[in-house]
Design a protein around this nucleic acid. Structure first.
Lengths: 223, 223
DNA sequence: TAGATTGTTAATCGATTAACAATC
DNA sequence: TAGATTGTTAATCGATTAACAATC
């Protein structure tokens, strides 16, 4: 867990980490994991900055938000840094995740190996289609969504990925919120409403292509 | 196309649009399209701001970067606004897209309806596996990647989505760059290198879950 | 030690917000 | 007209960078 560095907290005792820093933290983690795979023992802010396309100062500042795990004159020890970032992000332990919506995308997510490598395990899948309920997809049982509550409790599920059609998204969201889910990864291309205690990250694939089209059309705009 | 508003260009004649604005532009587009579906004729900065969770001032400022398409006392006419944003983003015409990598995710992308709705058409798919080459997936022909160049030319393909295994990503990227592709949507969880003229957007699904885990663990941090 | 590199401060830069005259 | 809402300016806020003393 993040150490109690005084600078991390504001007057109300709330953790204050700029959103942009959190985004880069995942990128640092990914790069350092690759460096380890390539046999590197240590790295430094200059190297990481080059890999990510940010300044060395920014790398140091970002990491220093969470404590001091660099070594002056040496840099950052890769294993140490990975452990520190995972601990900060909460991925030093495994998260059980539920998936709602066994369509094209849902199946692809069930088969996707990348989640497990980063500490996420899809342990139950839900749908409303009788043709898939009761089957297993990639070793994961598919339940009727009415069984959500019991599975969430039984498996200590805190996160849900939602890959249902847009028109069904809000209703599903309401149900997962009802059973106490804390975070939602929403693949439906709609804005969803949740109580403020619940966290949402939206991934809209068409929107990503749109962003790409914009940067291509306006070639010279700031990346 | 964006009008030649003087404020959009810097001393070197380059378009200057803050990255954050571009991201919100897609969100505005999505919301206004939903408002139209709900039968609304006009909207305004306050309404859009509430839908997106930003201030009304920000909505007006963002849109004003690209010209004046609001109507004082009235707001924004939905149809007009959609047309304007599409024109700015370059999605007022259809983009032909190629897909490389027909695995789990690749197949899901081929079947995904959301792309077409926003003006993107996957017109050719590529792989190196003889078992899929020559077949059709969701009506799209699968070719050997060696046929990339000819298809790109024949179909005027400017964008590519890459859903190959991480270890193959950079080699594929080099090939698509070689044939003149202008933008890459990279689903492989690795940083790729491209010449500066080529645009890249990376989508790392595990990283999205990681971000979600962080916000759940650090509940009180700035959203 | 000399060289390398961190963590942190102060200066810079950029993005957001508040306020309001202009407009319909 | 009166009321509503824009586009834009100036003020505020936050994030990035440069520089450097502290450290190994």
């Amino acid at each position: 867990m993040p150490e109690s560095k005084s600078k991390l907290f504001n007057d109300q005792g709330e953790l204050v980490v700029p959103k942009a820093v959190v985004g880069r933290l995942s990128l640092y983690l990914r790069e350092v994991q690759h460096l380890i795979r390539d046999g590197k023992e240590t790295t430094n802010s200059t190297e990481l900055g080059k890999l990510l396309g940010v300044t060395d100062a920014q790398v140091r500042k970002d990491l220093a938000y969470f404590g001091q795990f660099g070594h002056p004159g040496v840099g950052y020890r890769c294993q140490e840094l990975v452990a520190a970032i995972k601990s900060i992000m909460g991925t030093n332990t495994i998260w059980n995740v539920a998936l709602v919506g066994i369509g094209n995308l849902g199946r692809a997510l069930l088969r996707y190996k990348g989640f497990h490598e980063q500490g996420f395990q899809i342990v139950a899948a839900f749908d409303v289609d009788d043709n898939v309920i009761g089957t297993k997809v990639e070793g994961v049982d598919v339940f009727h969504i009415r069984d959500l509550a019991s599975m969430v409790t039984a498996q200590s599920i805190r996160l849900v990925a939602i890959s249902v059609p847009s028109h069904a998204a809000q209703a599903v969201v309401d149900q997962v919120v009802e059973v106490g889910i804390e975070g939602i990864l929403n693949f439906a291309p709609v804005t969803i409403s949740v109580p403020s205690k619940v966290r949402v990250i939206g991934v809209d694939l068409a929107m990503e292509l749109e962003q790409l089209a914009f940067t291509v059309v306006n070639r010279d705009s700031k990346s």
